[in-house]
Amino acid sequence: MALRIKSHWSDPDRARSLDEVAGALAFIAWRIALDRAINLHCERFVYRDDAQRLAVIEEYLVFLIQIADRLAHARLDEDRRRDLITGFARRVFDHVQDNATDLLGPGAHGAAFIERLNARSGEYAEYGFTDEGPSYPLLRHLGFEIQRLMGEGQENRWVIDQVMDQDGWEAYRRFDRAFADLFESDPI
């Protein structure tokens, strides 16, 4: 089933705040990350429980926040870029907290996500990103982290290849297109 993402503003002539753009990006990122986690299951990779599936979704979200930062670098000055990415990360945090509470029960689930985001931000900063998209090492790191989360048992031993060669690229392409669509008429 194809993932449909609404990434055009209903009134393209109305100016949007960075917070509105951040909210739209967070919703789109959540949908893409969820879709990629579902796709792994469809490709016969095995999750042991909902907590593991949520951790994979969070790993994709961290990756997409890094992608957004790289894409914003080309479009925005440093202050607006920082505001957008901070707002985006806060909105993603809200999605993680709400969905984790629904799946796992009450708790400070978003705090673990922020820890992961902070750790990965330094790691991803080491990898390149060009006009063609993320570098192979950047995608390999995403695949490595998802492999680590899912385990290296017989059923999941090739998940790193799936993420590096297909799912990571697909997440990037969808997010890149949505990001460009939201900024199409320079709404902010």
Rank of each mutant, 00 (worst) to 15 (best):
A24T: 04
L40Q: 06
C42R: 08
T86D: 12
I57R: 10
G128M: 03
D19W: 01
I188D: 14
S7V: 09
E152W: 08
H8C: 00
D102C: 11
V21E: 10
G87M: 06
V159Y: 05
S10M: 07
D186F: 08
Y136S: 12
D94K: 12
P137C: 12
L64K: 10
L61Y: 03
A89D: 03
R36V: 04
L142A: 03
I160M: 13
L103K: 13
G143D: 13
D98P: 02
P12W: 05
R36I: 11
A29W: 01
Q147G: 15
T130P: 07
R157W: 08
D161Q: 11
L34A: 04
V46R: 08
F88W: 10
A112R: 02
R16G: 07
L40F: 09
E115H: 11
W169P: 06
Y47P: 09
L182H: 00
V92F: 06
L117Y: 04
S10K: 02
F93Y: 15
E132M: 09
D102V: 13
P187Y: 04
A37M: 14
A108Y: 06
A89S: 12
A72D: 12
L182K: 00
F63G: 11
R53P: 00
G151V: 07
D181R: 00
L3F: 08
E115M: 06
S17D: 06
S121K: 02
F88Y: 14
D94H: 09
Q162Y: 01
W9R: 06
R177L: 05
I146L: 10
D69Y: 07
G23R: 14
R120H: 06
E78C: 03
F183D: 05
Q154I: 05
A55E: 07
I85M: 13
Y127V: 04
L25Y: 12
V56Y: 09
F183Q: 03
L182P: 02
F93K: 11
A89T: 02
L54H: 04
R157T: 05
A178M: 05
I160L: 09
A37V: 10
H95Y: 11
G151L: 09
L117E: 01
V163G: 08
A2C: 01
G133F: 10
S10Y: 04
F45R: 12
L71T: 01
F179I: 14
E145A: 15
R16C: 10
L54Y: 03
I146T: 12
D49N: 15
G122F: 10
F129E: 13
P134E: 11
R120M: 07
V46S: 06
L149Q: 15
K6G: 08
V56T: 06
E115L: 14
N118A: 04
A72R: 08
L117Q: 01
A33S: 14
G122I: 03
Y124M: 11
G105H: 11
V21R: 08
M164R: 14
W169D: 07
G105A: 13
S7R: 11
V21A: 04
I65C: 12
L18E: 13
I28A: 02
M150Q: 04
M1C: 08
N39R: 15
Q162T: 05
R14M: 00
R157A: 13
G133Q: 07
E126P: 03
D77H: 13
G128E: 10
F129Q: 09
L76K: 03
H109T: 06
V92L: 04
W169E: 11
R36E: 13
D102A: 11
D19H: 05
R174N: 05
F179K: 04
E123Y: 00
I28E: 05
L139F: 00
V62C: 08
